[in-house]
Amino acid sequence: MTTQDIQALSPAVPTSKGVLSRLSPLYGLLPLVAFLLFFFVGPLLLNLAESLGMTQAGIDFAQYRRIFADIYYLRVIAETIILGVAVTVICAIIGYPLAYAIARSSGLQKSLLIFAIVIPLLVNVVVRSFGWMVLLSGKGALNWVLSSFGLPTLSLMYHWGGVTIALVHVMLPFMVLSLASTLETLDPRLEEAAAVLGASRFATFRRIVLPLSLEGLMTGSILVFTLCVGSFVTVMLLGSTSTMVLPLLIYQQLNIASDWPFAAAMGMVLLTIVMSVLWLQARLRRTKWRAS
């Protein structure tokens, strides 16, 4: 999304007009730029300085050495990334059919489907996570149903399973909405043409629908992954010490250990993970077949 906005704003062909008039549409962005400088870039730099211990003399990488030398912290980083990837992949798999149904429906049916997808966003994330606790806990609704059928109960609560299920529920709307918006632009005739040419349903999806909706899949994935590796409430409520992720670790260092430089360093690591995913997306986004 952001890369698109920037591309749209940058003048592709320099005109003979003066620099000022060419920049004029950008004037409107000045308040936003000021806001970002003051409330985002500023604190970020402070955070970076904090993590590098720059209040004392010189730059000190000690906090980063602490993170990368300890197998425990490395594992938390790895598991945070794995959780993000897993939730993203599950959201994509569940989200595709839903998004396709939305894109191909119309009228009341479409409104209802979109409403059904969006309505969870209206409920506070704490409440939703609490709802999952009620469902998944040891004596929760799920296990009650399972045991009443004589099936073995599941211990999803305080494990990755429960955390993943709850996160997928929270993130799904973002994936579905960005997928649906690109699928809507896909001409149904293309799928028909593929079918007439002998393509099975699966081949049509793999060769036509998927490549042509890659942009939406990418946007949705970035959104879900970024929100996921930064999510805090859901993991805190449904997880335990065995499901430690970076945001929780940062929270602990701040509130319990009061180790601000260490928390700041971990914050920078988290930021780096998100930024590298965005960078990856920007690299992959080059589509040569679009009309320029």
């Binding site: 001409d187 005739r189 293309l190 028909e192 043409a193 593929a194 007439v196 060769r207 036509i208 490549p211 042509l212 589509t287 077949w289 679009r290």
Partner: peptide, 12 residues
């Protein structure tokens, strides 16, 4: 074999 009124070529 079919040629659609809108061609329906695969853009990618």
């Amino acid at each position: 074999g079919m040629v659609f009124q809108s061609y329906a070529l695969f853009l990618h």
